[in-house]
Structure formats: structure tokens, C-alpha cells
């Protein structure tokens, strides 16, 4: 069941974003920013977590899930460490994703050469 939920929820988020992509002049970069911020806000409003409990990877893999993750990290850090946690939590929670993207991205730059678009 969780496979089906992941598929249709994740797919639905993407389909909705496709409307933004096709019908507005928003560049992809702005849409990514929008998604992450939306995820963080929905997380703070306690909406995203129940949603993610239902949809699993369907909610955590889209970038909005990344926003939620950032919020979760900040909240947990504030609970544990107080004020300084506001500065600690975000990067801590997102460390795996950002590090992986940077490290693999850098290695890719060493291995692969630029190619023409098909």
C-alpha cells in the first residue's frame, strides 16, 4: 500500500508543479525555491508531517519534503539546545542530501565532460 501512496502522491505534486512550469514564466530555479520554502512552512504548521506519514517517499522525495526536513531539524535542535538550535538544526538535518549532492556533483565534474543537448 505504501508503494501506491508514494507513487500517486509524489506524482500528483509533480503534476501540479507542471502547471506552474507551463503556465507561468517562473524559471525552474524559482520553482525549486518555492517548493522548499512551502515545505518548511507546511512543516511548521504541522501539516506536512502527517501528510508524509501517509505518503512516505511520495512526500519526502519531492523538494517540499526537503523543506519539511529543514524545519524538523530546526525544531528538534531548538527543543534540545535552545536558541542556538535555530542555527544548528537546518544544516544538520539536511546534511546527507546537501553533502551527497555536492560531493557526487564535484566527482561528476572530474569524471564527465560537458555534452551537447540532444
Amino acid at each position: 500500500m505504501d508503494y501506491i501512496n508514494a507513487f500517486w502522491v509524489g506524482g500528483l505534486i509533480c503534476a501540479l508543479v507542471q502547471i506552474l512550469l507551463d503556465r507561468t514564466k517562473l524559471m525552474p530555479g524559482r520553482i525549486m525555491v518555492l517548493l522548499v520554502c512551502t515545505g518548511a512552512v507546511l512543516g511548521a504548521l504541522k501539516i506536512y508531517q502527517p501528510f508524509q506519514d501517509f505518503a512516505g517517499a511520495g512526500a519526502s522525495v519531492p523538494l517540499a519534503g526537503f523543506g519539511n526536513l529543514l524545519w524538523k531539524g530546526v525544531k528538534e535542535a531548538v527543543d534540545k539546545e535552545g536558541f542556538i538550535g535555530i542555527f544548528l538544526g537546518g544544516f544538520k538535518a539536511s546534511a546527507a542530501g546537501i553533502s551527497a549532492a555536492l560531493v557526487f556533483g564535484y566527482l561528476a565534474a572530474l569524471i564527465f565532460s560537458p555534452k551537447m543537448k540532444k
Binding site: 509524489g10 506524482g11 509533480c14 512550469l21 525552474p28 522525495v61 523538494l63 526537503f66
Partner: peptide, 10 residues
């Protein structure tokens, strides 16, 4: 958007 929105797009 199916390729843009997931973490793979990032």
C-alpha cells in the same frame, strides 16, 4: 516537473 521536483532534480 516530474524530473525537477524530486530530490533528483536538486
Amino acid at each position: 516537473a516530474g524530473a525537477l521536483v524530486p530530490i533528483t532534480g536538486f
